[in-house]
Amino acid sequence: MIRSRQVTAIASTILVCSMASAALLLHKVDQVPPAATLQQMLYISSPKLLKRLCLGYEGLLADIYWTRTVQYFGGKHSQGGGTYKLLWPLLNITTQLDPHLIPAYEFGGTFLTAKQPEGAGDPGKAIELVQYGTQNNPDNWRLYYDLAFIYYDQKDYRHAAEAFLRGSQLPNTHPFLKIMAAQMAQHGGDLETARMMWSATYRTTHDKMIQANATAHLRAIQVNEDVTALERLVQAWRDRTGHFPGTFTEMVSSGWMRGIPLDPLRHPYRLEYGGRVVVSNPDDLPFLDKGLPIGHIPSAVPKLSPAN
């Protein structure tokens, strides 16, 4: 009888409305560019201190930092990349907290090495990270593979071959490492080696982003080979006729090719003035050395289309 219904009604209304607006505002806060709110991940940037502060719950904390790492990279990546300043510290903290978190090394090895805007472009740190991984997980061949890959990417074929060799001597190793060691020692810079490396990466990882990255590289290798072959054909046409063909259609109708050549994404290659062969949509194909239109500025946002 005494309870004031009015107070109850007003308080209930405020409670519901406020909680709803709070959730809405939170959603907006989450959309504020991560640079603003993600810095705090490194509130404590010393892994040693963090390890002491977390009172023995390193495992959980490592998982939290691992999630943050992936979120950070994914968020930055979808916004067009950038410097990935926090990628190394985050990975460092994650692996120091839990040195057996293998996916972190694999992920770090790939994206610390990759040049901007696809990665942090810091192979030195990548090597440091993966070496720390091999020290703590000496029986894991996958880490030697990752290490070799970073050296390979730096065109340091001697160290790459060495890493493959060490990995191939482990008890439960993948036989492919031995082959790679030999291939690396003899044909380090060949396109074929590159193809073997990337397809192996694709086959041996579970990480979707790493798979997408490998696919993009494999496509770039394919384009590289296609363009080399096509330009050689165009040069032959010129040697025969004394002038460059205007279009591929011209070559098809003359019986020089069976159809308009297609790039790995099934888009037609284009013939430019001066016998240059280019892809028609370079934005979809990152990592190209050849086949880029003249004056093409690579998009800030790399497209790592899903693997197929």
């Binding site: 209930s12 405020i14 409670l15 409305c17 406020s18 709070a22 806060v29």
Partner: peptide, 17 residues
């Protein structure tokens, strides 16, 4: 600012209820 205002209002309403 807005978030803290509405969140505190919600919590205080709960306390009042």
């Amino acid at each position: 600012t807005a978030y803290v205002l509405v969140y505190s209002a919600a919590v205080l309403s709960g306390a009042v209820l």
